[in-house]
Each structure stands twice: as structure tokens, then as C-alpha cells.
Design a protein around this nucleic acid. Sequence first.
DNA 1: AAACAGGCCTAAA
DNA 2: TTTAGGCCTGTT
Length: 291
Amino acid sequence: MTIKEYKEKGLDVVYLCHIPTLSLEKSFDCGQCFRFDAVSLFNHKSQVGGVALGKYVVFAQDNENELYIYGATKEDYYNIWEKYLSLDVDYEKKHTCLLSLKNAHLEKAISMGNGIRILRQDSWEALCSFIISQNNNIPRIKKIISSLCQKYGEKIEFLGSEHYTFPTYKALYEAGVEGLFDLKTGFRAKYIFDACKTLLENEGFLESVKNADFTRAQELLCKINGVGPKVAGCVLLFGFDRGEGFPVDVHIKRTLEKYFPKGLDVSLLGDSAGLCQQYLFYYERYLSEDA
DNA sequence: AAACAGGCCTAAA
DNA sequence: TTTAGGCCTGTT
């Protein structure tokens, strides 16, 4: 079907023929986002579908400099999705910053990870998701979040199939620790609950995180039981548009020891730090999968 | 079967 | 202040 025919059937579609390099696979399969899956609904080389910011959309493309969005209008693109995909951000500039470190491994990581965009996700969703991510693996994280949404989110229909929005913290608070535990969240149930409680009892919490400087923002997030430096770093990077965030997990720790034996001064990277972390993470995972 | 998964909390030195 | 253990569950 053509775009025009989809539109006539009531499905919004927008096509951008010239965007900064974007790889859907890399961006949606590098562990920053747990709500998108590869789909084959349309006739494109690559396509991922999922719910973000309360809407179900399918991102699709036949090459990395174009983009189709099914379930969105042109206005939606400029108001919502361009920012969500960080297509308004100058990555060339960030690359220049990273290349100035003159590290051969990082150089390779950049060219291999080219097309990764840091998604600007909803703050609360990022907070909740990365609490769930701790001491866990991606398939199970996705499974837990999916059942969380199915049970406590709102239903959305897209071409006859059902999808669910990410639940509000109020909804999860009302689910209670037992309700959350029933979703196989395990020891994280009480952590999620504490996050809900914090946000419910302190209405300005997310806002104060947003307005605080990075260190202070991290401190605030760590007040939630179950949120430590790594989770807070992810939440700030992916949910608060804080490019300075450089979450260090076991993999990144190993990677840094390997490629930066003299250490890496993250503060030199400014708001390119998070992208650097993503490239290194992707690079290392790619190499290990290859082996 | 034992170890591990993009950590964090708690108790004990 | 730093350092082991333990933790829900699913997969290998």
C-alpha cells in the first residue's frame, strides 16, 4: 500500500527523506529502551514498533538517512519524534569531541556504532525501567515491563492489534508491593513501589531532578530505595536528556580497563559522555557476540 | 547444576 | 569507609 492509501484508511504516516544518520536496529537494541520490537507490518527493510510517550508508532526505513513513521503526522514528527530520536542534535559535533581523545578503540567504536541515537525517553518510564534492569538481563527486563504495561497501562489499538501505555506511578502505587511482585519483578518490587511512593508524596520530585545540576540530580534519584549510581546515571541520560551521564556497569567497567588502561576522564567529554558510553557498550557487545 | 544477568541493600569489620 | 553476601527469576 502507498502512504496515500494508508492515510485514506485513517492511519497517519509521515515520511522524512533526509535525516541525520539513524540506525533503528542499533538505537532500539542497545539496551536503552525496552519497549520496541522488530516488526514486519510494512514493506520496508527495517522497522520497529512500540509505545513511547503514550503512543504506538512504527519507525521504518530502507536506508539510514530516511524515516517513515506510521501512526504519526508531520506535526507529530516535529513536536515529538524528532526530539525523541535526538534527530535535532548535532552528533558530528559530539564525534569531534570524542575523537579528540585520540583513542583508536573509541574511534572504531564510533564508526561501528554510527547511527545510534540516544533516545529522549519519558523520565518516569526510564526511572522505573532501570530499577527493573538491575541484576537482570534484557529479555527478562522486556518481559517484565511488557506485563507491567499490559496489567496497569492503558490499551491502545494499532491496525487491529492491542498495545499498552506505560503505567503511571499512581497506578503502580495502587498495585502495591504484592501486585508488583506478582509480575515477577522479584526483589525489585519494593524498589518500584518506593519510587512510586516518592513521586506521589513529592509532586515536584521529577521537576527538581530536572532542574538540579548533574551531581545533585544523581543524589536526589539515589534517595529512592533501589536506585544506585548506575541506575541513576541511566535515568539521567535516557530520561532527563543529560548527556553528561556515563553509567558504569560491569561491562563498561571491563571495557574501560581494557581500552583506557590509564583511565578515562569522563568530565572531559561534557554532554558527549553518554554517547561515548553507548558506543563503547555497543562495540564491546558486538565484539563478544562475534566471538 | 551452578553461574550469571547493564546493581543495590544490609550487615559486619 | 570499605567489603562480602544475598537477592527473585529465567536462561544457559
